[in-house]
Design a binder for these strands. Structure first.
Lengths: 233, 233
DNA sequence: CAGTGGTCTAGACCACACA
DNA sequence: GTGTGGTCTAGACCACTGC
């Protein structure tokens, strides 16, 4: 016989989820406490605790001291997206990756960028544009500004063959990032490179990264026709 | 004095992250084992374990039995997005929410939908279209198909005043979902409702949900001008 | 104040993966 | 085999919060 196997926190998660799904504990209801459940399941309270902690992280239940745990009525569920390097994303799809630098210069810092990143009046930036291809089809056009104050040893020559994304990941750690996604229209600066007519919808990502409170880089990424970002849970 | 406070797994996370950021343990390097770290930090192994487990979940490190733990070279960091009800999202922004049903019918099931959801030849569907407004400005156009086999007690009258999204959340639990985001062009069916010229870029979300293996609903959501999905980490 | 979750400990055994 | 992470336990104390 081997019913002696210990109860795993995974088993408990499954059980609890089933009861939530089957409305044994309907949305908004208070569930039994950890002690009670640990007795029912025949395990330590810590085990129940881990199960419920994870369910709370996943947004199924809401836990508060003293009040107890209740089933979440509005399942504000969350979608996770992995944000890999472009090169990795392309290679994972089985396509051949190719990188090309389009332009690189050190222009005067535009005011909008100064405002966006909170740059001081004397901070200098590097501006560069590059393309990522998948099997020679345009996959992504990257338009990036780098704060020279945060990344001093930087030069256009660094990016002849290596994408700035990859270079930065390897050279500069970051502590915070903000990403946003939107739909924009292809314009003069990116339509040609993406092989799209001007005005065509383009899936667009913007990303700012900081090291502590100092801005490192601002990047806009324009994806080729038909790009989708997908997740499942 | 009170240096006697116990070491928290949070403290350990901070310490470890700092060492990773400062390249004390460079990307790809093997870190000390749990036992060693617990001695260094003066705490139980379980505490170090929890800290490192969370760091692994967050994608900073890679853990394997026997081999040990190494710092992730390619920070495949992940972005989390909350997917709340439209109504909640709008109200959270401080705007007034308004819902309007555009159309509702039970047409023959189109072949593309049959294929997309894996429906049988006799499965019937409900098709409905509705609008979500924020302060009377078009916020989202929702175009949804519901599988009547999975949601039997359903009728167009249910959606006169309550959005299908909200109705489904309250009536039908789901176990799995797939969401994807893309950029599309406004077309005859949604341009008017969103008050956009045809061809204008539209941020678009598609969502399929299942109860175990049975498809519940397929929805396309088209967002009004300038919509952005943002996250920070 | 009292009840519930949050966390830490010390110890144990297990599972996996590499040598 | 043997070392590392993975998990469970039993017990303890703490922290928040509603009464």
């Amino acid at each position: 016989m081997s019913l002696n196997d210990k109860v795993s926190f995974r088993d408990i998660k499954v059980q609890i989820l089933a009861r939530i799904r089957d409305r044994v504990w309907p949305p908004g209801a208070i569930m039994p406490g950890e002690v009670e459940l640990s007795q029912e399941f025949g395990c330590a309270r810590a085990t129940v605790n881990r199960a419920m902690r994870e369910l709370a992280e996943e947004g199924f239940i809401d836990r508060r001291r003293k009040t107890g745990t209740r089933v979440n009525a509005n399942p504000i569920r969350q979608a996770k997206f992995e944000i890999p390097l472009v090169r990795v994303e392309i290679e994972a799809s089985g396509a051949a990756y190719r990188y090309a630098l389009v332009s690189c210069e050190s222009p005067p810092t535009p005011d909008w960028l100064r405002a966006r990143l909170g740059l001081g009046p004397d901070d200098k930036v590097l501006h560069l544009q590059c393309m990522h291809y998948a099997d020679n089809a345009p996959f992504q056009f990257e338009d990036r500004w780098i704060n020279k104050a945060t990344v001093p040893d930087i030069d256009c020559s660094d990016f002849e063959t290596l994408s700035p994304n990859e270079w930065l990941v390897n050279q500069v750690p970051f502590t915070e990032a903000e990403i946003s996604f939107s739909a924009t229209a292809a314009n003069e600066s990116n339509a040609d490179l993406l092989a799209l007519p001007i005005g065509e919808p383009v899936f667009t990502a913007e990303r700012i990264t900081w090291l502590k409170t100092r801005p490192i880089t601002f990047a806009r990424m324009f994806f080729g026709r038909g790009y989708r970002m997908t997740t499942r849970f």
